[in-house]
């Protein structure tokens, strides 16, 4: 067993874990943060996407021990003081979801993407979310949601 401490959304979570424990299971079962989903479990779908030191990665394809001492953001960390983040607001306003299963991963990828590219074209948005699969929407409203968030962030920076 290995002792790990992982900071998730600003709070430290410590546990004795087996090295084989996947990061996504640490997040869901040790930290009880179930907004991060297990989808394909084979590095394909992106439902388990979290931010690892600010970068979106698939938490089903990392061991929890590898995140020891790191800072993670999950969907629970996006809203601040009860106020939705621009990306969350975009998915709400533009109806960027149907069943909602892919949505946490989709939003975390979008948050990191807009930080890097605040002024994206539609093509760049589609490229950025190409590691996150949605089986419901056909992506049209997801792309609209990300565009909405980009506009919103520009407004609030002015």
């Amino acid at each position: 067993m290995e002792k790990v401490t992982i900071n998730i959304n600003g709070a430290d979570y410590s546990a004795e874990v087996e090295p084989r424990l996947l990061l996504v299971h640490f997040i869901r079962e040790n930290a009880n943060l179930t907004g991060t989903h297990v989808g394909c479990d084979t590095t394909s779908c992106g439902a388990c996407t979290i931010l690892l030191d600010g970068k979106p990665v698939k938490s089903c394809t990392m061991f929890a021990v590898q995140a020891n001492g790191k800072h993670l953001t999950t969907v629970e960390g996006l809203a601040q003081n009860g106020k939705l983040s621009p990306v969350q607001e975009g998915f709400h306003e533009k109806h960027g979801l149907q069943c909602g299963f892919c949505t946490p991963g989709m939003m975390l990828t979008s948050v990191a993407f807009l930080k890097k590219n605040p002024n994206p074209t539609e093509g760049e948005i589609r490229w950025a979310i190409s590691g996150n699969l949605c089986r419901c929407t056909g992506y049209v409203n997801i792309v609209e949601a990300v565009k909405y968030a980009a506009e919103k962030m520009k407004e609030s920076n002015q």
Partner: peptide, 9 residues
Amino acid sequence: VADPLVRNR
């Protein structure tokens, strides 16, 4: 190579 999330690792 793979997709943007995989490429971060």
